[in-house]
Amino acid sequence: MIDRLLGMVREMGVPRLLIAGFVVLLFATAVATHMDIAALVTDSIVRVARNGVLVLALLPAIQGGLGLNFGLPLGVICGLVGCVIALNAGIAGVAGLLVASGIGVALAVPAGAGYGWLLNRTRGQEMMVGTYLGFAAVSGMSIFWLLAPFTNPTLVWAIGGKGLRTTLSLGDSFAKVLDHWLQFTVLGVTIPTGALLAFLAMCALVWWFFRTRMGITITAARSNPRFARAAGISDTRTRVQASVLSTVLAAIGIVIYSQSYGFVQLYTAPLLMAFPAIACILIGGASVTRATVAHVIIGTFLFQSILTTALPVTSQVIEGDISETARLIIQNGMILYALTRMGKESA
């Protein structure tokens, strides 16, 4: 019995149990201090739907043997360009969302292919190359946002009439079109049905993809490249496919994120976006070499619940905003844990 319990703990991992315990503790404190639980749950669900696809974007990279995709901002930028073009053209509503995603995907395919090509030539250092490629791309795009020929007066700085603003409101465009679709309230908890459905549909799509011929070859090439080669699968190709898929999902992910948030954030905003997403999938149970859709859903739910509830709950107990500090420690502690355990688990 005790052995089995210990086995379960080992299966779950100590940090994961600690985090689950932390979530329970936060909600218990909220109940004890008579906080508005329904509002907390609502916020948590909204944040899960908002961030879900960005977390999901990491899955193909892990399954394809690229490790944790710190280069996520690459795809995010593609999605942002899509958003800005849709905004500039004044396309609102669902059409705006579709145009933004469409342009994002169209840019993400070549970007992801190039990224995959580079990662094939830098095997063993994918995470470091990805991190800095992402950083370089974000800072390079900052120059682009400043110089790009966008003219819509609602987007550019009022003074000078040049250069995009740092945050663009989606209020008149496609803000919350998914969140408000079929939205309903149960026991005071508001469910953003459309956004949740979109996230779950993307999850289902990815789940299904990894059961198709292409998906299976990607996984097979990761878990045993030599065996896969014997079966006629080149992992050089499957790794590029994985990177394209990851980048495309990141582009869609940021469009969904922006519609839920109501704003498009440019310049340095995407710089550190990969890190919380990576923490999510790791908290859900993924490792550097293996991830499932369940890991994505569980992890997003756990980590985003912490992020939403930590601030209001802890401010009941202590003065000052400890949630940002807690986020830094949990997020990076989780990534460090995964990095130090990489060699120990069977791939």
Partner: peptide
């Protein structure tokens, strides 16, 4: 990459 994340942590 460990050093980078350790710095954030």
């Amino acid at each position: 990459v460990t050093g980078l994340i350790a710095g954030f942590f």
